[in-house]
């Protein structure tokens, strides 16, 4: 239990996927101009990341590993993620049109989110169990959501700030992201390896 809690905290804060591992930067920069769309993206990503990390764990440990085909995991995981995203979209579209309207265009975008593939590959690399994989995926998604919401709030403020002309737009956003990343580096002492 302690271990799971540690995984959760370390993925959300210490080894944050966006600001420390620098994965999933495209939605981080692309969909963070407005708080609503950032939250939509965060929700959709949380859903898909958790599900796909479980599915890719299953595919790896029950199909690829027994056959000695670990070298196929990248293409296999891409397949898994694409299917999970497609299937999720179909189910959501049918069962909850309202949620589909909220998540809408964000769901297909996640297929190309490198954080999703990154989580699946890191799960294998760290030899996580099924439960650990699920928690790791959820933690990564929670960290991603946290950063998306924080960054979107910052950018909404930045939009009205008096930024010098050469720094306007993407430049100041990248600088802000860098400063946030520096701040998150401060969490690195939070979890120590025990006495």
């Amino acid at each position: 239990m302690t271990e799971l809690a540690l995984i959760l905290i370390s993925t959300v804060l210490v080894n944050n996927f966006v600001l420390v591992k620098f994965l999933g930067l495209c939605p981080f920069m692309g969909v963070s101009k407005k708080l609503e769309s950032a939250m939509g993206m965060a929700l959709a990503t949380t859903f898909v990341l958790t599900l796909s990390s479980i599915c890719s764990y299953l595919v790896h440990s029950y199909l690829l590993a027994p056959l000695g085909l670990e070298y196929l995991r990248t293409i296999g995981f891409i397949l898994v993620i694409a299917v999970v995203v497609q299937f999720t979209e179909m189910v959501v579209h049918k069962t909850s049109p309202l949620l589909h309207q909220v998540l809408g265009i964000f769901l297909p975008l996640i297929t190309t989110n490198c954080a999703v593939l990154g989580v699946a590959l890191l799960n294998v690399q760290q030899q996580n169990t099924l439960l650990q994989s699920a928690v790791y995926g959820f933690g990564a998604a929670a960290g991603f959501s946290l950063i998306m919401v924080l960054f979107a709030a910052l950018r909404e403020r930045l939009a009205v700030a008096d930024v010098p002309a050469p720094f306007q737009g993407g430049a100041i956003a990248l600088i802000t992201a860098g400063l946030m990343s520096l701040a998150f580096m401060g969490f690195s002492g939070l979890v120590t390896a025990g006495p």
């Binding site: 595919v59 199909l63 690829l64 056959l67 000695g68 085909l69 196929l72 296999g76 397949l79």
Partner: peptide
């Protein structure tokens, strides 16, 4: 094996 496994998966 690899071809088969991927085909089955797909």
């Amino acid at each position: 094996e690899a071809i088969l496994a991927l085909s089955v998966l797909a």
